[in-house]
Amino acid sequence: MTAVLKVENLVRAFGGVKAVNGVNFEVAPGELKALIGPNGAGKSTCFNMLMGQLKPTSGTVYLNGENITGRPPRDIWRRGVGRTFQITGTYQSMTVAENVQMALISYHRRIFSIRSYAYRLYREEALALLDIVGMADQADRACAILAYGDLKRLELAIALANEPTLLLMDEPTAGMAPRERIRLMQLTADIVRDRGLSVLFTEHDMDVVFAHAHHIMVLNRGALIADGTASQVRNNEKVQEVYLGGGTLYEQEKANA
């Protein structure tokens, strides 16, 4: 089976600094995969390149076998990639349902249509998507007054509007209470199972990562240092070092002790 997402030798340099330096990985169909790493390791840069917000300096990104490197975000979306952002980008002046309807209008290529009222279009479909994430009861609330966790769930519903084969989620649980985090990831895992899509997500809450991800990749200083199951990653010495410090300082401390 071909990989849903295949990344080859991805590099992105800012000035002279290589934020992402030769990353290779694959995401298999139906896989829930996490990309973790310390702040500044290059997770967001990596993500932005996958979704087209940033152009890679070099390297290739394949989606279901098709080269999508450097295409604009809207193109990549049309090819079946949904995305949620670390800082939510919902439309504040619309209702919850309208946010999803907007994505559906775009999916059905009716952006420039002026024939009908937008709030009536694809409402049933939107409600069905909201139902999946448990937001149907809040469909007519203004997006601007939603609680943070609800916004995140709304974003998930929006990301499903184009029937994606791959979901990219950037820090999906950032800023949420621990219980909400578990709920959201459980929901994501259910969606992966029910809809057979793949998810790649970045996350800093290790509980979330180890509880839900099928596979985990660890990024450090722009390079992957581990890619495997939870226990493989947990026992990887290099990963231990990155997360618990180390290097010369660690040696020095051991010498002092």
Partner: peptide, 16 residues
């Protein structure tokens, strides 16, 4: 705020 983040180990030592 996070003085050791994203810098080379030898500098981290200097920082300490």
């Amino acid at each position: 705020d996070e003085p050791s983040e994203g810098i080379a180990p030898v500098i981290v030592e200097q920082m300490a």
